[in-house]
C-alpha cells in the first residue's frame, strides 16, 4: 500500500541510472565498485520481489497504522514544516529500533538477513530487500508514530524518504564525506561497517538517515583504514539461488524448531539472538566479538590502532 506521493516509486529511475553509472565508471576505472553478475542478479531480483511482497502485506500494515491513529495523543498537521522536522527524527529513531532488533532477534533477522547476504557492496546491494519483512511484525516499531499523532500518509512518505536516502550509501565509490556530515548523517563509510562481517564491525551502525542514534546508544563504530571491511554474513551463502537467498534463515529456523526439545528451546530459536543454540555450540555476534576481543587482549593486533 503506497501513498499518492511515494518517494520510492519516484526514485526508481534514479536507482537504475546510478547503478548503470556506477558499473560504467567502474568499468573504466573511474570509481571503485565490484559487481559479480550472479550476485547482482540476486540483489536486483530481491528488490523486485520485495515490491510484490509489499503489496501482499501493505494493507495489513496500513490498517494497523490507521487503527492506532484513531487513539492518537496529538493531532500533528501534515502541512506544518516543524512536523516534517519532527518526523525526520521520530521516524529515524523508529528505524534505528527496528534495525537493531533485526540483529538481536532471529525472528526479525530471518527477514533482514538477505539484505546482508551479498559479499559485495554496491548500489545494487541497496535494492536487495526482504520479501518477508511484512510478516514478522517488525513494522510495529513505527506504530508509536501513529499514536503520537503523525498522519499515516506522513509516516509512509517519511519511510520512503529514508529508504531512498539509504540507497546512495551502499557504495564503495565514496570514501568519506566531509567531517561534519560524517558526524551527523549515515554515510557510505558508516554503512560499509554495518555490512561487514569482521568481528570488530559486527552489529554496528544501525542508523537510517542519521548516525546520531548509534552514538547515543553505544553502537557506533567508525570505519578504520587499517581494517578493510569484509562483506557478507557470518556464514556466507554457498550459491546463487533466489529462493535460498530469500528464505534460508526461515528454513533454518524451521529446522531448529522441529528439533527443539522444549518450549524454552523453541522460544530461544525464534526469539533468541541469531546464532543462539541451547548448548552454545553455535555463535552469536556477541560470542564472536568476545572471542575476537580475547584474541586481541592476548596478542595486541597489528590492525588495532589503540594497541599501537
Amino acid at each position: 500500500m503506497r501513498p499518492s506521493f511515494d518517494p520510492v516509486t519516484l526514485a526508481v529511475p534514479l536507482f537504475i541510472l546510478t547503478i548503470v553509472l556506477e558499473i560504467v565508471l567502474a568499468r573504466f576505472g573511474k570509481v571503485k565498485a565490484v559487481y559479480e553478475p550472479k550476485d547482482t542478479a540476486m540483489s536486483l531480483l530481491m528488490g523486485l520481489g520485495s515490491s510484490v511482497a509489499g503489496l501482499l502485506t501493505g494493507g495489513l500494515i496500513l490498517a494497523a497504522t490507521i487503527w492506532v491513529y484513531q487513539y492518537r495523543l496529538f493531532t500533528i498537521p501534515m502541512n506544518a514544516w516543524w512536523a516534517w522536522v519532527a518526523i525526520l527524527f521520530a521516524e529515524d529513531l523508529a528505524y534505528y529500533g527496528f534495525h537493531r532488533f533485526s540483529y538481536e532477534r532471529r525472528l526479525w533477522w530471518a527477514a533482514h538477513v538477505n539484505h546482508h547476504s551479498s559479499q559485495h557492496y554496491n548500489l545494487a546491494t541497496a535494492l536487495r530487500q526482504s520479501w518477508t519483512g511484512g510478516i514478522n511484525g517488525a513494522w510495529v516499531m513505527w506504530l508509536p508514530l501513529s499514536l503520537l499523532g503523525f498522519p499515516p500518509a506522513m509516516i509512509l512518505i517519511q519511510k520512503g524518504i529514508s529508504l531512498v536516502y539509504q540507497f546512495w550509501i551502499h557504495t564503495e565509490a565514496v570514501k568519506r564525506m566531509p567531517a561534519w556530515f560524517e558526524a551527523v548523517f549515515n554515510t557510505p563509510s558508516h554503512h560499509r561497517v554495518h555490512h561487514a562481517r569482521n568481528p570488530r564491525y559486527l552489529d554496528r551502525n544501525y542508523g537510517g538517515i542519521l548516525i546520531i542514534w548509534d552514538k547515543m546508544f553505544g553502537t557506533f563504530q567508525p570505519e578504520l583504514d587499517v581494517e578493510p571491511v569484509r562483506y557478507g554474513i557470518v556464514k556466507n551463502l554457498g550459491g546463487f539461488n533466489l529462493l535460498r537467498v530469500a528464505f534460508h534463515e526461515w528454513v533454518g529456523m524451521g529446522k531448529d524448531l522441529l528439533s527443539a526439545k522444549s518450549v524454552r528451546e523453541a522460544a530461544g530459536y525464534v526469539f533468541g539472538a541469531p546464532g543462539w543454540s541451547p548448548d552454545g555450540s553455535r555463535q552469536t555476534s556477541d560470542m564472536i566479538r568476545k572471542q575476537w576481543q580475547d584474541t586481541q587482549t592476548a596478542e595486541p593486533a597489528k590492525t588495532d590502532p589503540a594497541a599501537v
Binding site: I16, V20, P37
Partner: peptide, 19 residues
Amino acid sequence: SFAAIGLMIALAAWAKIAR
C-alpha cells in the same frame, strides 16, 4: 523494472568488474 534488471545484469557481465 524486470526488463531494466536484465539490462543491468548484462551490463555488469559486460563490465567484467568482479573480483
